[in-house]
Each structure stands twice: as structure tokens, then as C-alpha cells.
Design a protein around this nucleic acid. Sequence first.
DNA 1: GGTCATTCTCGTACGTTGTACGAGAATAGG
DNA 2: CCTATTCTCGTACAACGTACGAGAATGACC
Lengths: 245, 245
Amino acid sequence: MDPEALWSDRRHRRGRPPAHTREAVVERAVAVADAEGLSAVTMRRVAAALGSGTMSLYTYVSERDALLELMIDAVTGEQELPPATDDWRADLAAYARGQRALMRRHPWLPAALAGRRTLGPNTLAALDHALALLVPTGLSPLACLEAFALVSGFVASHIGYEAAQESALGDAEQARRFAEANARYLTKAVESGAYPHFAAAAAASGTGPPPDPDATFERLLGRVLNGLTAPADPRPPAPGSSATG
Amino acid sequence: MDPEALWSDRRHRRGRPPAHTREAVVERAVAVADAEGLSAVTMRRVAAALGSGTMSLYTYVSERDALLELMIDAVTGEQELPPATDDWRADLAAYARGQRALMRRHPWLPAALAGRRTLGPNTLAALDHALALLVPTGLSPLACLEAFALVSGFVASHIGYEAAQESALGDAEQARRFAEANARYLTKAVESGAYPHFAAAAAASGTGPPPDPDATFERLLGRVLNGLTAPADPRPPAPGSSATG
DNA sequence: GGTCATTCTCGTACGTTGTACGAGAATAGG
DNA sequence: CCTATTCTCGTACAACGTACGAGAATGACC
């Protein structure tokens, strides 16, 4: 829990030298998570992958949560942070694309990130980089932070949307049975007539060509980026209508 | 895992009548979650709150995950879904406000929602309602679904942002010590000069009046709603600049 | 080289979790 | 009454995070 101990790599001075490094532990944990999901990242499993006793991990990591934070920071460091150009919109789009690629390469990342405020060296560097990209917008520093949260939140939640779309199309053999049962249930819900607009959307999902995930992401990202600098309310409310209370 | 069994309330026909109802179980679970957080929602804890044996819960719920889904659907049912007016923007804003209020009343909701695609009767009703509000935008049904995901994702992720802001201001006595340690660590990071833009944002956070959470939400929500119907890319790239690759 | 403080290793053990199992209790229909 | 059916819940087990402490391995100093 102590951030100092978490992010500083204490050098070995006296006593028995450690058999591994913190980096190796984190690397193994990431490999396990990539291969078998976040729930497979148990202390026993990671220790086994490292070829050490379970409790030895606690030499490198104070608790499981700390390991997760280190994993997040480690994979965040994979993203390239190219210098800003004269087009902040393109720069920010590139950053968002990098975030998306990261989350697709490490599908456990959104879940690990949920409800966590990781601020390690790499995470801070990425945040600082994104803030730098936002400077040309002329927004205040605080507004830049909000804008970053907006874009960042969009990417994370869109990854979830993509995952739902893909599983609806039915790719994983193992989830096939559940998808079918779910489809049966939803078909019944649709046919009940209680959810006409959902039914329309579901019908539209079924017919026509499957949407290109990349194109969908780009389109929605464009809309989010639009919102960053546009005036807050371009359409004044109709003169006759009062607030909804 | 079977959606049919999850969302249909089977009537009691023969044999020993159940001592409780599924609704009562879910209500107790929600109460526990509201009071002590999602991690306190264990089968043993909920059973105790209900005054029954632990294993009796499995008569009403097939597994813990199913209980969480029922909890989500139950509290989603709390939100009012007023009929559409002639101002879809205001309608959608009201819906988003309702979602935010829901998540503030049940702070465990975002965490429970993470990585889950709950489609119970109330959840479907809310989704259908939101889609109905989006019809006047003229977007295609599929685009409406995307727009809903966009708004919904924004609200959820903004709740996380709000929580971070509030904990940074230091309200909970218990989190005080951690906040101080974290502040010390961040101060050091800021003073290292490696993160100048983050430093600027942090400085801006410290000075000036604390931002009004409601106003911030409204402002960002406005930006998101703007993006829904605005053209995807209002600023054509500068003629001389090529893509970033 | 011997001694000692220091540090890492990891077997054992405890408390907590979800839940499988099955014996017993309660009810409805015959 | 009897019997089929359903709910109740004590017991039990595997898996989890991790506290504890004995043993092993090293660097620093005499």
C-alpha cells in the first residue's frame, strides 16, 4: 500500500542476494494473465511460473494488489509516446489508438484498471504525455485532466463494448453454449414486444454486414474528440420548454 | 449462468414452500452492499442478514454471480424513465443524471457492472428507454446502440473520476493515512520535474476553489452529447501533414 | 577465516471464500 | 396415511491471500 515501497526499486546491499528480480516476477505475472486471464494470477500460480516457493514472492511484492499495480504500470510502459506534432487532434487520436491496442494485447487490463488509480512511473509518463498533447487545445490544466479522463474512460468502456459485440458474434467455442442460451432468452424478450427499440437494434445487428471494429472505434473516437473543445451547449433549449425538474 | 432461470420467477407448486423470496434475498444483498461495500456481499453475510443458513441461498440463486446480476437489475429498476419530450438532448441528459444518481446511491454499482453485460427486465427496460430517447436524433438503430454505450460508459467512468477527486480532497478518515503517503509520493514525483504537465494540473488542482462536482458532470456530459450528432471530423487535417503511421 | 547481522527462501498453517453433497424437515396430492 | 417433491442447512473441501518462523546464504568487519 505504501507508494514509496511500490515504485522505488530498492538495491540489494547486505545479506542473501535475491534469486529473482521484481521485473521478472511482474513479467511472469503478465504472461500468466495474458494466457489465462486475471483470475489465474494467484500468488501460487505466479510463483510456480517463476519456479520459486509461493511465499518468496512477498520478498518482491508486499501483496497481490501491489503485483497488479506493477503489472499495469509495466504494460503501460509498452506504449510508445511519440512527440507532439502540430495537430493535437491527430496526436490524441494516436494516443487513444495506442491505449486500445494495449488493452487488446492484454485483455485483462481493463478489469485490472477498474476501480484503481495507478500512478507508477510509466503510468505517470503516459498521463503526462497525454496532458502535453492537450496543451495546444488551450484548455486549462484542470480541464486537460478532465479531457484526459474523458478520452481514457471512453477507450476503456469501448473495449468492453467491443468484447460484447465479438462475443455476440460467437467466436470462442467455450462461450458458445452460453451465447446460444442467452440468444434464446433475448429472442424471447424481443418477441415479447416489451422492448421495441432494443428489438430494432438487435434486428439491425443481425442483418447487414458485420461492422468493422476499427472503423467503429475511429468514428466514436472522433465524436469524443469533437466534444473536447466544442462549446458546451450549441443548442439553446426551446423557449417554451421548462426544465424537467 | 442460464438466463432463463435467472430472470424468470418460478412459482412454487409442490413440496415445502420457500421461507423467503428471491426479492427479499436480493434486497438484503443490496442493503449489505450499500452499507459495507461489494466485498461484504458474501453468501454467508447475506444469509446471516436474511436470518437463514448459508446454503439456503442457493434455493433462490444459482451462484454468487447470479446474485450480483439480480442486484444490478434490482437497483436499475429504481430509476424513473419519464416519457420523451420534444428535446432529445435534455431527455438524454436527464437519463444520464439518473444513472449518475443511481451510482452515487449505490457506490458498489460501477464495480459490479464492470465486465458484465446484465440484461434483466429492468436493465432491458432502461436500455430500451434510452434507445427510444435517441430515435429523434435520426441515427440508425445500431448507431443508437453505440451512442447509448458512449453515454453509459461516460457516466460510469466519470463516477470513478469523481471518486478519485473526492478521495484526493480527503474525506474518509480511514483513507487519510494512505492519501497522505500518496501525496508525499506524488509531491516527490512532481518535484522531480519528469512530469511537468501533470505537475501543472496538480498545482491547478491545489489552488483555486474546489470544482463543483455537479457542474463538472454537466459540462462533460454536454460535451459528450455534443459529439453524438456532430459530424465525425469537423477539422480536416492540414494539407501538408501526412498521417502519423 | 571466523563471526555476526542482514536478507532471502519457503513449508506450514490459519482464516475466509464459494459451493457440492446429502440427511432431515415440511408440504401437496393421492 | 403415504409418497413425491421441495426447501433447509450442517458438514466438508478446494482454493485463496498471507502471517509466522526456522533455515540458508551472503556482505561487512575483526
